[in-house]
Design a binder for these strands. Sequence first.
DNA 1: TCTGGGGTCCTAGGACCC
DNA 2: TCTGGGGTCCTAGGACCC
Length: 431
Amino acid sequence: MYAIFDCDNCYVSCERVFRPDLVGRPVVVLSNNDGCVVARSREAKAMGVKEGTPFYQLAQLFPGADITAFSSNYELYGDLTLRVMNIIRDSAPAFFRYSIDEAFVSLQGMPSDFNYKQWGEDLSKKILKWTGMPVSVGIAPTKTLAKCADRYAKDYPGYRKCCVIDTDEKRVKALLGFPVGRVWGIGRRSQARLEEIGVKTAYDFTMKPRPWVRRLFHLPGERTYLELLGEDCVPNEEMSAKKTICTSRSFPGMIADFTTLRTHVTNDAVRCSEKLRQQHSACALVSVFIDSNHFRDDLPQYGGWGSVPLLTPANDVQTVVQAAHDALQKIYREGIQYKRAGVVVSELCSDGEIQTDLFDYDADEYAKRRRLSAAVDRINRINGRETIVLGSQQYTAPQGKGKAGSFRDAIKHDFRSGNYTTRWQDLLRLE
DNA sequence: TCTGGGGTCCTAGGACCC
DNA sequence: TCTGGGGTCCTAGGACCC
């Protein structure tokens, strides 16, 4: 048996931990630059607020509605979900974190009289009490069925946050009431194709012959099909090191000049190098992309992509930033209004097993750069992100407008909550 | 005025090798 | 009329996930 733990409306729940007055009210969390709705409370969903709705349209679509909006605050979400994960890890035999707000647990080898339902309910209660985060639990013989069970646990309060599918009778009953498009692994495209031929529920799907599924939906589809029938196919995997790492941002406005664009690319490259060091990887290829504004048909469109290989794989700030600058230089075109830029690092290897280049490699310089990056990481870890930055990360201040700006401020976030759990100056005050 | 960001896996087809 | 057979590697694009 597997259990899936999933935070309810994760980002909204994180905000509500420190704003309990918003429980039971429509709340949304916005993407970077306060662009789109990325998370909705149950009340907001019930009103018909769709995921991806541009924020500026909310007022038009729901005139007079009292919807509370938050800018996204990933520092807060990262910290609260980590607390949730730690509780699950400490209470479960085998644990695999699957995403920021989800974790699978393998319950293999539990005694035959083990009470799954009670276990799930108790753990959900404990997490709520200790962290303030509502979490629902689905338990079943396969991960895909556990996801279905979790859906029921979320949608029907009667389950008291935990739904178990442990007999074939329950499995069939669950699948009969489950729209095929909500199955884990069946996306919008497959849903449309399935519904066209009369497959509406997950149960209908499981009644099709296996070769037919294989032919139309290939290997991934066949795997989902078998999982729904109760055959365990999705491997138990720890979150392993990523194979590519990307940092990209849209800009609040548009940017035409090279220097400002380069400042953004620098910040993206710095973030990529931090992420690389965090997972103890080094990259052999640094790529940069820049894009004009697709929503503006009236302006010339251009998308550029350029890469710079590193002869010796690296993860230090200077090397990655320098390569990103070189890549940007190659693709930058004048006369374009840019809306988005990003850096991708790929061809990753473990930073303990770097293959050095005979002609490029300077051991002293290499060691120096590593030490510098380590020092920067340490300072920023202890004193807060971006305590120390490269000169080229600083945005030039607009004429007469005080000091140069930081990356954090280059993104619009008018409704951001405090970092209550990670920054001393944001600690809540009770008066 | 305003429209997100970050990943994985699989497949088909082309280019190339002998 | 007939015009081999068997591989590998790479890339682009599709589909999915959160």
